[in-house]
Amino acid sequence: MTQASVPAQAGVPAQAGAGPMVRAEQVHKSFGSIEVLKGIDLEVRAGEVCCLLGPSGSGKSTFLRCINHLEKINAGRIWVDGDLIGYRERGGKLHEMREKEVAAQRQAIGMVFQRFNLFPHKTALENVTEAPLLVRREKRAEVRDRAVALLERVGLGDKMSNYPSQLSGGQQQRVAIARALAMQPKLMLFDEPTSALDPELVGEVLDVMKDLARDGMTMIVVTHEIGFAREVGDSLVFIDGGVVVEHGNPREVIANPQHDRTKAFLAKVL
């Protein structure tokens, strides 16, 4: 349990800033006897918008959750900005990180969920200020100013004192994005951020995400919004059965898929 069963990787001294923002190597993950991820390799450059596509149950959410160590991987390695996630390598051996260290790594990785998961007992503003105040112990006034600016940026300047139950789905998801941004992450993970929304509310969330992408945020987005992938995505990764089936420029992959499974999937969602 305390060591991932992988051979020590030879010579990958990824340095912060220099290398890719996210680097996954042969990521394996099983739930009990069922292997969900069967060796995922992926690289995401800083500033890149990477869209993950794939049929239901293919392991997209699981992979995303491995990146911020919400799930422990069984084999392989994941680096974010050069830091090995969840483990420390010493003398060719992996040591499990303590809870505090894992939490510290997660601060740099924002995550947005399909079902928003806002804190219902806090107002929109409190949702955004909570983590910087509690986790980073920043100054209240600074955090507040930043939170107000973020909420204004996602178009909710007039809803700051509303509780989540007093907001529409699209507004809740925009608060959730602001909440993640308040920790000033280097990387944002989106797990089907628009799937739980009424069709007329999808656009407002996608607009916020496009704005983020233009600002140079590194993003990994699990989505069924082919239009978003084509317009905003720098790369598209098609996952099926726990492996990467196809990886390339979104416009090329969508227009001209190489694999049968990609073709079949795109035919269904387009």
Binding site: L70, A103, Q105, M111, R115, L118, F119, A180, M183
Partner: peptide
């Protein structure tokens, strides 16, 4: 469960 996950993703510890 999603509450705990969202909080974990923000970097909070179990106690927090």
């Amino acid at each position: 469960e999603g509450q705990t996950e969202a909080a974990q993703a923000l970097g909070m510890t179990q106690g927090q």
